[in-house]
């Protein structure tokens, strides 16, 4: 029901207002992320940052020796880990999460062009680019899978008694290997964000210029224009 209120298919309605944090995009700008999406992203990013920062001294004794307070570091790591799925669950669960749910569906679905991009290991260009490029879609799925697997393996490390002994070894192995992969993927994500300041700013302010969308997400721009949600310079007064 509440999905319908903010659906882009609801005709020439004014831009969706989801919570008071979202201002209507000004002319020539598109709403890329609403307040709920931005809060979810940055809460998740904060937890990942704390988890990665506390993982280093827990894993490398040389770092631990100058950080100290290992028990505290371990507690922070454990409880941030347990909290990891909470921002996503809360922001997805309620009526406020309509846009996020729609973007999750969008992240899940790949066009045949994007599948070909994946099969070519990223060498083919995607012409009719969606709101998210296939690299971003892959990143989102990886982060989602990571949350699940790190939470499960971490829980077995912390609360090992109900599980067989060999699972503890397996969980150690999985937690380590995936942690290394997460460091690599998150480093790549941050690097892309820093080298694409407009896209990064969209995750802060929520909006992005039409010019950017024309260049990087023409498929998405076409959808938004047909759904009538984007103010058009030609038809807007002034």
């Amino acid at each position: 029901m509440s999905d319908e209120l903010v659906s882009p298919t609801s005709g020439a309605a004014p831009p969706p207002v989801v919570g008071s944090r979202v201002a209507a995009p000004s002319v020539g700008r598109l709403l890329r992320f609403d307040g709920v999406e931005r809060v979810a992203h940055w809460a998740n990013a904060t937890l990942f940052t704390v988890l990665m920062a506390t993982a280093l001294p827990l894993y490398f004794g040389s770092i631990e020796s100058f950080v100290g307070r290992r028990a505290l570091v371990a507690d922070i790591h454990t409880w941030c880990g347990v909290a990891l799925p909470i921002p996503l669950i809360i922001s997805l669960a309620g009526p406020w999460g309509a846009r996020l749910r729609r973007d999750v569906r969008r992240l899940n679905r790949w066009s045949s062009e994007e599948v070909r991009w994946l099969r070519s290991f990223g060498t083919r260009t995607v012409v009719n680019a969606d709101k998210f490029n296939p690299g971003q879609k892959l990143n989102a799925a990886f982060i989602g899978g990571s949350i699940l697997v790190m939470l499960a393996s971490g829980s077995i490390l912390k609360w090992f008694q109900p599980f067989p002994l060999s699972w503890r070894t397996g969980a150690t192995f999985v937690h380590d290997v995936l942690a290394a992969a997460i460091f690599a993927v998150v480093a790549g994500h941050v690097l892309f964000a820093l080298t694409h300041p407009q896209a990064l700013r969209a995750m802060v302010t929520g909006t992005i210029s039409k010019a950017w969308a024309e260049r990087h997400a023409p498929g998405w721009l076409a959808e938004e224009l047909t759904s009538g949600l984007v103010p058009d310079e030609a038809s807007s007064p002034g």
């Binding site: 992240l107 679905r109 790949w110 066009s111 879609k137 799925a141 393996s153 397996g170 150690t172």
Partner: peptide
């Protein structure tokens, strides 16, 4: 209009979950 059909995201997510579970059980 992009033909958004293949649920690759879900496949990546579920593959990671399956690999993680297998890794925990036979990782040793």
């Amino acid at each position: 209009l992009p033909d958004r059909r293949a649920p690759i995201g879900r496949r990546v997510f579920l593959s990671m979950a399956a690999l993680g579970a297998v890794g925990i059980v036979i990782g040793s």
